[in-house]
Design a protein around this nucleic acid. Structure first.
Lengths: 195, 195
DNA sequence: ATTGCTTTGTGATAAATGTCAAATGAATTC
DNA sequence: GAATTCATTTGACATTTATCACAAAGCAAT
């Protein structure tokens, strides 16, 4: 459920965006800001739903989200994101129906950006074009790493890597979701953990 | 082994690039062309080697390539590409050492592009910035689809999907490589096929 | 505390896949 | 064409993991 969708004070929003996107010049930032708005929302809210077209991508100010596919009434997680991360789906960015659902794991505060408007800006504003480029490339590097892990590592190894790289994840995310993310069943993850 | 690295006639190169990138205007195309050159090379040539930094991405005019990681002296393929496809690695594009090796599956003809120079162009030329964006997004959509298949489908299903979508692949690529691409051993693929 | 509800853990079994070894088949070289 | 190499298939067996069933633990609301 969406709690509030107020406009942050202009100066507050500007300060926030400036700190996240320091490479945007004054004018680019102003243009960018026009299509950004503050959003506070409760655990379980779906920012993006599988099979639907959406208009927004998000920046997480506070809170956390999971992204998952549905498979025969079961959820299979593809990624998690936390504070200070930019999130969305590449299909949504392309104007296509999303393949994934993005759902809040806890009450969260976000900034949402209108994709169409921002994309329009990329046609005239080089620094914004680059910013979007960088965001997408970061996502792409992440996908490559994930593919690498799924193809090469045993489930034990994937668990260890996750545990070392982001131990915080185990505070926020249920073991059921983590198991699906690692590509094993709950039971198998439980057994991996107990050794 | 690289057979020849001649300049195509300017008009020939221009015609070729124009047909592949119809959205580039006259001037953008000219700038783009300056950093492109024709390349003819034999089966087994490595365009990009794991662990090394490289300067180029490629367009396949004729031939085919495979991309793979090495794992304990075994190769695990991550993708294949054929005629008319733009190829490279995202790490190379980012100036990082490549994680993958890209190798020709047969004698091939390519156009190679200097990444650094093209990237410089993206800082001043919006249509080139967009072109690169589109190429990267296409790759990203591909990676998502692959992750989806690896996480959700059984190996039998993955085989069927590959067989239906790109049956040609079985002419060009060894079953050993296809098996690693599908995430199973040769033996398992052989058994899947015999049913 | 009691009742539900959800998450996590454990055991027994079955299915899928990997490993190792050997056989067959196809392609290449001498 | 015989010999050599490489790719693919097949068999026997071991390992991993999924599945199903159920128990235990944690948590929220009464």
């Amino acid at each position: 459920m969406i709690l509030a969708e107020k406009r942050m004070s202009k100066s507050e929003l500007q300060k926030t965006l400036k700190s996240f996107f320091p490479n945007l010049g004054e004018e680019s930032l102003d243009a960018f800001m026009k299509h950004a708005s503050y959003l506070k929302s409760t655990k379980g809210t779906k920012l993006i739903s599988e099979g639907k077209r959406h208009r927004y991508f998000y920046l997480i100010l506070k809170g956390s989200v999971k992204s998952y596919y549905s498979k025969e009434s079961r959820e299979v997680c593809t990624w998690f994101a936390f504070k200070n991360e930019v999130i969305g789906t590449i299909t949504t960015y392309e104007g296509l129906p999303s393949k994934e659902t993005i759902e809040l794991l806890e009450d969260s505060e976000l900034i949402k950006f209108n994709i169409e408007k921002i994309k329009e800006l990329t046609h005239t504003d080089l620094s914004i074009s680059h910013l979007m480029n960088v965001i997408i490339i970061e996502h792409t590097l992440y996908l490559e790493e994930r593919l690498y892990q799924l193809q090469f590592m045993t489930s034990k190894k994937r668990y260890k890597v996750l545990y070392k790289s982001t131990p915080e994840i185990f505070q926020e995310v249920s073991l059921t979701d983590i198991a699906s993310y690692l590509g094993v069943t709950r039971e198998t993850l439980s057994r991996i953990r107990s050794k």
